[in-house]
Design a protein around this nucleic acid. Structure first.
Lengths: 148, 148
DNA sequence: GGGAATTGGTCAAGCAGCTTGACTATATAA
DNA sequence: TTATATAGTCAAGCTGCTTGACCAATTCCC
């Protein structure tokens, strides 16, 4: 692959990521939730059993101070709540509220909708799975932080 | 594709884009240039024949004020210069200097290097071309702005 | 056990990079 | 000609992040 092609790939990746992020955010807003793009990706970490601020920071690729501010925002808007951590009195377990779950489902729906549009461009869902598997092999657990 | 899978795809896309952006930026710095990630993507627009501030703003997905500040930065660092536009006295054509071309090549090299690492994970360059073509079909001319 | 080092979380201040708003100069349309 | 649109810049403001300092709880290790 030529050098210039590689930079084109990077640009395409960023354009696609930006497009998807925007579509998901718009979809969430259209479903009656107020939010910013980071919410959806925070939810994916909080969803199963909750997470600490430090976990969330690592997942999003920001400092724990920034993650703490995000959690404060989520709590203020009623999407999450802080509970004492069962095994560590320093830590607090951040879990989704019912409204948080609803917003999570909205984000997932919006994501599915956006991906559906893409599937048409690519000619089917099979291709989407291929794309997803390729991406997951590239950056399986990387922090989700595509900002410039 | 299930809704939760779609959100996973989005996360993987963002993680991959973030990983690549970081690698390219580090590679450019390692080659002796000071810069931030936006530079490389500005260069891809300026490279062929130059561009106006407004062109650049559209390409990056920011306001023309932000693009103007970026150009000011590029000029100050010796990567670009402003010339009178041949057919429009309001506009100014921003073109790369020799140092700007050198930095562009460094960015392309860094991108190729980063993509090379990926190619190993995916099992070959052919797969990378598939990935690139898929992404280009998804967001062919979208603005390059993956921030949250 | 007990002191040192580590870790989880928050408060405070600062800043980079973007935005909106206002304005000038040139170009285009009526 | 007059009015409207476009290219660019200046100025101010704000959002979301960072670094630095700090306290409380935990873990390490002798």
């Amino acid at each position: 692959m030529q050098n210039s092609e590689a930079l084109t790939l990077a640009a395409a990746l960023l354009a696609a990521a930006g497009d998807l992020t925007r579509r998901i955010d718009e979809g969430v807003v259209a479903r009656g939730f107020e939010g910013r793009p980071a919410y959806g990706f925070a939810f994916t970490r909080l969803a199963p059993d909750g997470a600490t601020v430090t976990d969330l920071a690592a997942h999003l690729g920001v400092t724990k101070q920034a993650a703490s501010q995000l959690v404060e925002e989520l709590v203020r808007k009623g999407y999450a709540e802080r509970r004492p951590h069962p095994r560590d009195a320093r830590a607090r377990l951040v879990v989704l509220t019912e409204r948080g779950w609803a917003c999570t489902r909205a984000a997932e729906e919006a994501a599915a909708e956006a991906v559906g549009v893409w599937a048409e461009s690519l000619g089917g869902e099979g291709e989407m799975r291929v794309l997803r598997d390729q991406l997951l092999r590239i950056a399986p657990y990387g922090p989700i932080r595509p900002a410039w």
